[in-house]
């Protein structure tokens, strides 16, 4: 092994890396928000008594998650190229629809884990169905599924690297750019790997901490 390391390129191209990092964070954040909204909507549809509505959710989940994320992105970026959506928007759409399917499954299992009596009791106190879900079912379901959601969030951050394939200038893309400019292949990719590792670790730890504080909060409410 006679590879001579030169880590100075990382510092030299810090602007590219910073820009890539910011884009990865933005992409993941938007992807997370839309995936969560889609997941809550579809997960709720999957939990209603109407069989037809449940079918909509099932078809969505099975199609969205059995198609590779790369193809999701190609669909918006290449198949629907005449829409002229910016690459960033295509990446967000692909990420949200793909990950939304996983969130749907988690939300569905969370709602199923809340005893049905809770919803019935909320209705009996006079809350309209939407308020009963909003104030009684969702908070309890969220508490149950937060660990799974934290896992999905870190998965989504990692998945966002595929946006580089459709030329979104995020972290992986910039690593490729630095490699192309300097031929410091190993340094570029190892450094970017460590950045992803750090980002994923921080996000999942923070989400787990949030669960813990939320848990104690709900317990004190139920005791009070």
């Amino acid at each position: 092994m006679n590879y001579s390391f030169d880590w100075s390129v990382i510092w030299e191209y810090r602007e590219l890396i910073t820009r890539g990092f910011i884009n990865t964070v933005l992409l993941s954040l938007l992807g997370l928000i839309f995936a969560a909204l889609l997941g809550i909507l579809m997960g709720t549809l999957a939990s209603v008594s109407s069989r037809r509505l449940r079918w909509i959710a099932t078809i969505y989940v099975e199609t969205a998650r059995n198609i590779p994320l790369l193809i999701h992105m190609y669909f918006w970026y290449i198949a629907l190229a005449y829409l002229r959506l910016p690459a960033f928007a295509c990446a967000v759409l692909g990420l949200s629809i793909y990950s939304g399917a996983y969130v749907t499954e988690v939300v569905r299992s969370g709602i199923a884990a809340v005893p049905r009596g809770q919803y019935a009791a909320a209705l009996a106190t006079g809350l309209p169905p939407f308020a009963a879900m909003r104030h009684v079912v969702y908070p309890q379901a969220l508490k149950i599924v937060t660990p799974s959601l934290a896992g999905l969030a870190s998965q989504l951050i990692k998945d966002s690297s595929l946006a580089s394939v459709i030329a979104v200038a995020e972290l992986t893309y910039e690593a490729g750019a630095i490699e192309g400019l300097t031929f410091r292949t190993f340094e570029a990719y190892i450094f970017v790997s460590l950045l992803y590792l750090a980002l994923v670790t921080i996000v999942s730890q923070v989400l787990m901490l949030l669960t813990r504080s939320r848990k104690s909060e709900t317990i004190s409410v139920s005791e009070g």
Binding site: Y3, K158, S161, L162, F186, Y189, S193
Partner: peptide, 24 residues
């Protein structure tokens, strides 16, 4: 822990570009 913390695409790049560059 390392592998589960990084994206698949980056992992592939490690095997296709980075490790061969390192090992010659």
């Amino acid at each position: 822990e390392f592998t589960r913390g990084i994206p698949l695409l980056v992992f592939l790049f490690l095997f296709y570009f980075a490790l061969p560059a390192l090992g010659g």
